[in-house]
Amino acid sequence: EITKEQQAFMKVIVDSYNRHQIPQDVTKKLLQEQYSAEENFILLTEMATSQVQVLVEFTKNIPGFLSLDHEDQIALLKGSAVEAMFLRSAQVLSTKMPNGHTEVLEERIRNSGISEEFMTPMFNFYKSIGKLHMVQEEQALLTAVTILTPDRPFVKDHPAVERLQEPMLEVLRKLCALHHPREPQYFARLLGRLTELRTLNHYHTEMLTSWRMN
């Protein structure tokens, strides 16, 4: 079972995950702004910027993160931002938002000039996350694990990052056993999503180039 220390450690991460959300004034624009590819492009770009700021605020609260070398902090955030944001968007889209926000957001994404070949893997990822029915602690910890992935470009001190990621993986493994007793493969399935995220990350760079051209 989960030790007292792990419990406290997890609480810090989950509290931070809940505290740092995209501000209301940004999300409510989803419903207000009128509807065109340009409008959707601007709105999605604004939401992405806000999501990066939220991600950094969340990451600052990950135990030990601020004790890492400053440039390594930047390299970790830069290397994982897109993946962490896709993970967060998937979680938001898979928990039914009130009065149709999910449908509106999905429609905007589908009508913002993003190429179809990128749309499919992105929405497939959202579906696969939705099917996992992750509890909040799992979502928060998986996001933290994604950010603390040592092998990102320009990260110098890999062992220091591994020392932070290791306890998180350990707690996540225990959580999965606790919340999904009849699914021994659940933890492995979660980590499988991280691989899928890396592919999405690769697509994302290509998608941005074509999106800008559109």
Binding site: V52, Q53, V56, E57, Q73, A81, L208, T209
Partner: peptide, 21 residues
């Protein structure tokens, strides 16, 4: 690509945030 530079700027500014607090 320009966006990555933009991304790094947003990250640096947000990280600096704790120095102002």
């Amino acid at each position: 690509p320009a966006t990555n530079l933009g991304l790094e700027d947003i990250i640096r500014k947000a990280l600096m945030g704790n120095l102002e607090e």
